[in-house]
Design a protein around this nucleic acid. Structure first.
Lengths: 232, 232
DNA sequence: CGTTCGTCAAGAGCGGTGCTCTCTAATAAC
DNA sequence: GTTATTAGAGAGCACCGCTCTTGACGAACG
């Protein structure tokens, strides 16, 4: 039977979940560099070497946390988007931007793990790329929906993108079908600007300078939305 | 005499410089987490404990590297700005943006130390704040110069900033005198957008997506310059 | 000139890390 | 019931930041 076989696999799956939960808690307090397999093992009442039955290396544990993190922020963004009427494109954009910022403020070390400096020896395996674009796909849908509805009126202030960028635009267009190259490029400006702002706030570049950070954030992503051509 | 006294201090200063040089080289290859006092000492032919005569802790060595890094990127930006005619505001903006990107690509780990995830236990001491704004001050001068020359025509697409942001604008205005609040806010959008783009490229968010990164960068910072109101 | 005092390198050592290896005990498969 | 697989335990390796003590050197002072 596979019922007995799954008996052992079930406890194994439970242990893996317990390990990642403890690791995530340690990550939240000590940050990624302070995450220690030995400390996790200690808290589980295990000896350190036993952990390696479940995660062959510290990097594998980090990978699990990274995938969970991308899914968590992706889900937060999806929820924020779904809570708005589909044709309120400006409201959806503002809502998903706020969702990113609020998730990042609530999970600063996890955000740093996803969008901060990469761990030098660490190479993200292929399993991380699918969850990594969950949030980005939401922006793409907003832009594509607005464009399809004819509500996207990008102000004529940007030069036309150079021809060589057409290939890159083609790749990005898989997330926002039928959107012209110029708008794809503007979407990239808005996308990088959004995360640039969150990272600056979280990584300390606003210290001693910006005090009303929520208001600045709202205002700036609104500007970026206008640059993108969102109405209102 | 203080000539003999400085004799000892001179060898001390030389050793400090040699330590930071080796440390910077290690940083460039292994990254900040891989920087080890013992490895630096080993390369100097010292025993590890001797290093602590010059840097009381690893964090102090990191602080020295951070200050050097801010000065290096600040100097690169200043040089790029000075190489352009003072009234070529758009050219100056593009030049300093490129200088930031090129410095970051040439010194990825140092850039990560300055603008990436903060080291969890580490609190930047006050000596780092003055060098940290060297590059930002250059952007401020460009915006202020363009505004004073009457060459700044921000497109009317952004809403007026909320009143509460006036205090923050006042602080930022020390870097760009006489510039109105609305333009200060646009400058913040451009500033965060610039570093957001560099960070995304360096930290791997463009992997499997963007191939023509220099062209995308130029195009995007040009868009940000237009949003700011730069001419052409 | 000789002594004293501050500075420096060296060594040993503490507690911590990731990771590997071997050994034993429990458990599933046949 | 025997065999094969798996989980945990323990010891150990090489590394880390950091501390403390010891001995040597050199500069300043009486």
């Amino acid at each position: 039977m596979n019922a007995s076989r799954t008996a052992r696999e079930r406890v194994r799956a439970e242990l893996i979940k317990e390990i990642t939960d403890i690791a995530r808690r340690h990550l939240a307090t000590a940050g990624a560099p302070g995450l220690s397999l030995r400390a996790v093992a200690r808290e589980m009442g295990m000896v350190s070497s036993a952990i390696y039955r479940y995660f062959p290396s510290r990097d594998d544990l980090l990978t699990a946390l990274i995938i969970d993190g991308y899914n968590a922020i992706g889900e937060a963004v999806e929820r924020a988007d779904a809570a708005r009427p589909q044709d309120d494109f400006t409201g959806r954009w503002l809502a998903v931007c706020r969702a990113v910022r609020e998730w990042a403020l609530a999970h600063p070390h996890e955000y740093a793990l996803l969008y901060g400096s990469p761990v030098p020896g660490y190479a993200a395996p292929q399993d991380t790329v699918a969850p990594a674009v969950r949030d980005t796909a939401v922006y793409g849908r907003i832009v594509a929906d607005a464009h399809r509805a004819g509500r996207l009126t990008p102000p004529p202030i940007c030069p036309p993108p150079p021809a060589v960028l057409a290939e890159d635009a083609e790749v990005v267009r898989s997330l926002m079908p039928d959107v012209p190259d110029d708008v794809v490029m503007r979407a990239l400006v808005a996308w990088t600007g959004l995360y640039g702002m969150v990272s600056f706030e979280l990584f300390g570049q606003f210290n001693n300078t910006i005090t009303h950070r929520a208001e600045l954030f709202d205002h700036n992503v609104t500007c970026l939305g206008r640059l993108l051509g969102l109405p209102e």
